[in-house]
């Protein structure tokens, strides 16, 4: 282990916080919100890989790979949705799409 796990985790925490801040702050742009989600997922992958290294188990890496596959599926669907919604309202502002209001 080249650095203590805590440092890896703190780095992951910083990345995660940045991604969260991106999702919360960029409410006017769905694409930036999706980018924030990607950042957070990367933080999660970092945690998984770090744990895998620490305990010498392969599971962490497998999960990192799973996350990647899942992300690609999620991004493809989400971007398809963005295209679809943009076609309907000519905007990517997330707050414009509030037709599911209770």
């Amino acid at each position: 282990m080249i650095v203590p796990l805590a440092h890896v985790l703190i780095l992951a925490g910083i990345i995660f916080a940045l991604g969260l801040a991106c999702v919360i702050a960029w409410r006017t742009n769905v694409i930036m919100m999706l980018i924030g989600i990607e950042i957070m997922l990367n933080a999660a992958m970092l945690v998984a890989v770090g744990g895998s290294r620490l305990w010498g188990a392969t599971d962490g890496q497998v999960f990192a790979l799973m996350i990647m596959a899942m992300t690609s599926a999620e991004v493809s669907l989400a971007l398809a949705l963005v295209v679809y919604l943009h076609r309907r309202k000519k905007t990517v502002n997330a707050d414009e799409f509030d037709s599911m209001k209770g």
Partner: peptide
């Protein structure tokens, strides 16, 4: 609160 705005839900 449930105004249908995604940002509020995320927040």
């Amino acid at each position: 609160w449930t105004n249908g705005r995604v940002s509020v839900y995320i927040l």
